[in-house]
């Protein structure tokens, strides 16, 4: 089955990352790199998103499309990336999510 793992950052996580020294931050990125390498056979696609301050939102539910600065929902938790995986079932997707070494929340959705 195909699932998308959504990686969700919290404000605290962003602050912690900010506060890290050079070496520490490099180690954190290296851990993420290892995770992707380890599970390369299951990951079919992945995307890293730029921070929310770069987001632009278009609303189409009024008469004319309205373009605004910022994400569609202001929140303390923001999606920072996706990985599309191909595994047998939810349990296998859960094994992947549990071993994720970076941001503190991962949402799993079946996808087609």
């Amino acid at each position: 089955m195909k699932y998308v793992l959504m990686f969700v950052e919290t404000e605290q996580f962003a602050r912690d990352l900010e506060a890290m020294g050079e070496a520490e931050r490099e180690a954190a990125y290296a851990a993420v790199g290892r995770w992707f390498a380890e599970h390369a056979d299951k990951i079919t696609h992945h995307t890293h998103l730029y921070p929310v301050h770069t987001a632009t939102t278009v609303r189409l539910d009024g008469g004319e499309p309205v373009v605004t600065d910022g994400p569609f929902v202001e929140g303390k938790e923001v999606v920072s990336g996706f990985a599309e995986v191909e595994v047998a079932d939810l349990d296998e997707a859960l094994v992947l999510a549990r071993s994720w070494p970076a941001c503190p929340i991962v949402e799993i959705r079946p996808a087609s």
């Binding site: 079932d89 349990d91 079946p110």
Partner: peptide, 14 residues
Amino acid sequence: AEAGIPYRIPAGGE
């Protein structure tokens, strides 16, 4: 059905 919750006994570690 839709989220693919398996019908199995969890493996040793789980």
